Simulated assay, not measured.
Amino acid sequence: MKLGDLVVRKSYGGDVLFRIAALLQNTAVLRGTDYRLLADAPVKDLAQVENPDELRGPRTARVQASESMKRMQEERMHAREDKGDPGAAATGGTGKPYFELPGKVLHLDGDANYLRKSMAVYGQLRMPAEGIHCHESQMADAVADLLPKVRPDIVVITGHDGVFKNRSNYELLTSYKNSSNFIQAVRNARRYDKSRDSLIVVAGACQSHFEALMSAGANFASSPARIMIHALDPVYVAVRAAFTPFRETIDLPDVISNTISGMRGVGGVESLGKYRIGLPNIKPTLIVPTLAAADFG
């Protein structure tokens, strides 16, 4: 076994695919490839995986991710059809007279692979977004530094998390691997902008301390039932926030139930959307900044 190897845990029946992030004597630190789970396991409990598509669990996760992406694209297409042509009277009823301004996203991710996948989704949906890869322990500082520079409408604070073995008291932050880091990052976001309608905060990962994240000021967070969440769940929430009209509240039951993890994995509070249209129509390059991703630190 070496760093970067794809593995599953034999004692869990190979349900989740991991990548080895660190080796500490006879123990491996593992980061989920499809789920935002941070775990550790004895090296002897690991089985190396050559072809992930042969495993039922990882294959199912990839199918779910594909379906989630398809759903986001279909929602955008239907929204455009339902909108019709606002302002058509001013332009003689020809063509598409308006341009779109979806909310801008600042996405901080503790996993470089997840960040690339997330940025690809934003790009396909023509959303302005900046992505930052940084360790979960750096996120509080990164948020404080980047928010005044990027000035986003939505900030996603995510990466990997998990509950330590043999710790069943979910109320204690010491039971979680990275929840305290996410919470401090949310608090820094709220020091920058205290309004949940001005800045939408999406925070957490697998098994994160949902109640503490919400108390710190998040609009949406994981994980109410302390379950695993899919890598794209925070992205899906951010997309829905970015494309919900600014006069409307984000449809909570709808957006949460349509994440891959559902209501056991994601929760939130009523929040206004960030989407606007404008007149006259102009070139998209003038209003949608180029996607950018970088490492913090």
Rank of each mutant, 00 (worst) to 15 (best):
M1C: 06
L3K: 15
G13R: 08
G13K: 06
G13P: 04
V16H: 09
L17C: 00
I20Q: 08
I20Y: 07
L23W: 05
N26S: 15
N26T: 10
L30T: 03
R31A: 07
G32I: 10
Y35T: 07
R36P: 04
D40M: 15
D45T: 10
V49E: 03
T60G: 10
E67R: 15
M69R: 14
H78D: 14
A79R: 14
R80M: 06
D82T: 04
D82R: 12
D85C: 09
A89C: 11
G92S: 08
T94D: 05
P97N: 14
P102W: 14
G103S: 12
V105C: 10
V105E: 01
V105T: 14
N113T: 11
R116G: 11
S118M: 11
M119F: 03
M119P: 00
V121A: 12
V121K: 04
V121M: 08
Y122H: 09
G123T: 07
Q124H: 14
L125N: 05
L125M: 13
E130G: 06
G131K: 10
C134N: 08
C134W: 06
H135A: 13
M139H: 04
A140L: 08
D141I: 12
V143M: 13
L146Q: 15
L146V: 11
L147M: 11
V150H: 14
R151V: 14
P152D: 03
H160W: 05
D161F: 12
R167P: 05
Y170V: 07
Y170T: 14
L173R: 09
T174C: 01
Y176W: 10
F182V: 03
I183L: 04
I183Q: 08
N188R: 13
R190E: 00
R190I: 02
R190Q: 02
S208Q: 01
H209M: 00
F210R: 00
E211K: 09
L213T: 02
A216Y: 04
A225F: 14
M228E: 07
A231V: 00
V237Q: 00
A238C: 00
V239N: 02
I250H: 01
L252G: 03
V255A: 07
N258Q: 07
N258W: 09
G262W: 01
R264M: 12
V266H: 01
G268S: 04
S271V: 12
L272I: 10
L272R: 15
Y275A: 12
N281V: 14
K283M: 12
T285W: 04
I287L: 06
F296G: 03
G297M: 02
